[in-house]
Design a binder for these strands. Structure first.
Lengths: 196, 196
DNA sequence: ATTACAGTTGATTGATCGTTCAACTCACCG
DNA sequence: CGGTGAGTTGAACGATCAATCAACTGTAAT
């Protein structure tokens, strides 16, 4: 694969996260990547194709870049869920609550996304909730029998995205901590009623 | 107040919701409002001032336009929470899951918002969660004593925003229904342990 | 009738945007 | 050595953007 292509995708990934898709100009990307416009358009027919490449990179990076580091040394599947949420809290804290989930940001910024883009956003969400669902399946014997583990996994993502959105807007960790705290209460209740 | 000014704010409100802030051009707004650029800049020094006016309109409209209609004929404060969430579900269903919370959309689209904008986004969130918290206070005697009612109200907003985000992206009500369903389970648990 | 000013008109501006393209480099292969 | 083509260069293009402004209109006060 081309090294220039990788630099372009990486630069775009950073800038889309910092400024969003629409507010990132091609010139911004070229400057950060140290490339010329012709090179970009040699690899990507249009700006949107660079976006799909970025989303593919997130999709393929979710385990090696996000989950594996977060779950190193953490074996309990329920704790893995809250350790992951703690990662997002850390990123909020490290950025004075400027952090936003790159997928969530793009999902709400792009109002009528091209199908190729929308499918990749959805695939990223599914990969995230799918990993959570695997944790829940691994802990199935500690949860009430009738728990809808797919629904619960989506609820975990909902908690993260909704909490990050509010904390970003309020520039305060309060809403994120409140949301995760309520989710923890809910899990404590579920874990206290195993098998029911 | 000027009628033209109101038309501009209303047109901008619609377009910002449909296409987002950045993707809505001044020309779009002028066309929809039937006004000329000079008129817009007579009332608003810059595009961003039109955005703050839109956010003020949402803020002042939250009770008469959103909460009062949703809560008409619903007295139970806990049911009011889920009736409100059902409204959002209805808006998703009516738009084939294109609907997005206008405040949430703007909160994630604008990555480094001007303080005047950020404060108004936060004020809209606070007004929403504040209304939920009032419901929880009214039902305080039916909930466990140690429940953090502010935190729980923020968790309700988190559930709505996270659910809408996922359903929009998947173009399916599943994730929204899953999230609200889990929140309902949590409330059922809380209500079953009143006073504890 | 005169003044005053809020509100309107719409062509125009300069900046910035995504995209194009002809010319060029250079490694590799027959 | 000559040819091929992937990859690079950066000036240029047309479109679109937010914003400007001098001229104009209607109304209300004096």
């Amino acid at each position: 694969m081309s090294e220039t292509r990788d630099r372009l995708v990486y630069a775009a990934m950073q800038l889309f996260q910092e400024k969003g898709y629409g507010s990132t100009s091609i010139a911004d990307i070229l400057k950060k990547a140290g490339a010329n416009s012709g090179s970009l358009y040699h690899f990507f027919p249009a700006k949107q194709d660079l976006l799909t490449a970025v989303l593919d990179a997130y999709f393929h990076g979710i385990r090696p870049m996000l989950l594996d580091p977060a779950w190193e040394g953490v074996d309990d599947p329920i704790e893995r869920i809250f350790v992951l949420l703690a990662r997002y809290r850390q990123m909020l804290a490290d950025t004075d609550c400027f952090y936003g989930c790159p997928i969530g940001n793009l999902a709400l910024e792009l109002h009528e996304p091209d199908p190729a883009v929308r499918e990749r956003l959805a695939a990223n969400f599914s990969a995230w909730t799918g990993a959570i669902q695997e944790c829940l399946e691994a802990a199935a014997d500690r949860l009430p029998a009738q728990v809808d583990r797919k629904a619960l996994s989506q609820f975990v993502l909902t908690t993260m995205e909704g909490g990050v959105m509010q904390s970003r807007t309020h520039r305060s960790l309060e809403a994120f901590d409140a949301s995760v705290g309520q989710l923890r209460d809910y899990f404590d209740y579920l874990l206290a009623h195993r098998g029911e």
